[in-house]
């Protein structure tokens, strides 16, 4: 009898413990979700505020008690922003720089990565090592001399000045070389036996197989052109890219600025980035986690 009492008590004890554990688990999960939702709201709030502010009238924006949805939706703010910041010209400039530098940079990167990954030549390791070593030096050290170089070449306010100095990224060469090395060498030998030229082999075999990396590079490079501020501000004040134009169009910090129009301009500049992110999220997140660089 005493044995059964013991076991009943034990059973109760176990039941009690599993109940407590369950409660803990539920509380834990709720807490986790609550924490994540609050943080997500904080992360999203500036975007939400940007969009609703961009649709308000100025008097509504200035109300002492803020409204969380515009009473009257003013799409005209966007038209006004488009002309106030001359966004059309800025978009064109930026797209030219972005597309040209991305295409040229891809060609240079692919050719170099191919040479490092597939061809045997004297000094290969030395050159590759030297290239990697330059990655450790902060960009500011290059900027000073490049500013002088560009000025002395009389490239101030030209597209070359915005494109040429940044065409080679040793990191992208490194990334693509690693990718190319994973492609079996037998394919290259077979192509050689068939008499296929290097370029044809690159185009037909290597590039399709390394496409995800190339897409990541393309997106990051385009985002870079979209977000660059410092360099255009130094060498091309009269050929502003989107970020420079945006900042310089709205410099009033006295509090009297027309914020809805300003927010509309910001939203217009941010929109392409979000669209790219929406469709190519996988490549961006992959590229970023591997490269660890912004833009």
């Amino acid at each position: 009898m005493s044995k059964s009492v013991m076991s009943v008590m034990q059973e109760r004890d176990i039941q009690k413990r599993t109940f407590m554990q369950k409660m803990f688990k539920i509380f834990g999960k709720t807490g986790t979700y609550a924490f994540l939702f609050i943080m997500a709201l904080i992360v999203l709030f500036p975007f939400y505020w940007m969009i609703i502010s961009s649709l308000k009238t100025l008097p509504e924006y200035r109300q002492a008690i803020p409204t969380f949805w515009p009473k009257q939706i003013i799409w005209g703010n966007y038209a006004e922003a488009f002309s106030a910041a001359s966004l059309a010209e800025l978009f064109t400039n930026t797209v030219i720089v972005g597309v040209a530098s991305t295409l040229l940079s891809l060609v240079i990167t692919v050719l170099s990565a191919f040479a490092f990954a597939r061809l045997e030549f004297k000094g290969r390791e030395a050159v590759f090592g030297a290239m990697l070593a330059t990655m450790m030096i902060p960009g500011e050290l290059f900027t000073i001399t490049n500013y002088i170089t560009v000025t002395n070449l009389k490239w101030t306010d030209t597209f070359q000045a915005l494109i040429v100095p940044f065409l080679v990224s040793t990191f992208y060469i490194y990334l693509l070389r690693q990718n190319f090395m994973q492609i079996p060498n037998e394919l290259y030998l077979a192509a050689k036996v068939d008499g296929t030229s290097d370029i044809k082999y690159l185009w037909r075999v290597m590039i399709p197989l390394a496409l995800p990396t190339l897409i990541s590079i393309t997106i990051l490079k385009m985002m870079g052109a979209w977000n660059t501020y410092i360099w255009p501000n130094l060498v091309a004040k009269n050929l502003p890219l989107i970020t420079n134009g945006l900042r310089n169009a709205f410099t009033d910090t006295s509090g009297q600025a027309n914020y809805p129009v300003q927010m509309a301009a910001v939203a217009l500049v941010s929109a392409p980035l979000f669209l790219v992110f929406l469709f190519l999220r996988k490549y961006i997140m992959q590229g970023v986690s591997r490269s660890g660089i912004k833009g």
Partner: peptide, 26 residues
């Protein structure tokens, strides 16, 4: 995805949004 969103922004542009949020208007 939501937590990654701030990464795909322009630090100048969103800085202007933060400025608007902290600003005293008039």
């Amino acid at each position: 995805t939501i937590f990654f969103l701030p990464y795909v922004t322009n630090s100048i542009a969103i800085g202007m949004v933060f400025a608007a949020m902290f600003n005293i208007v008039g």
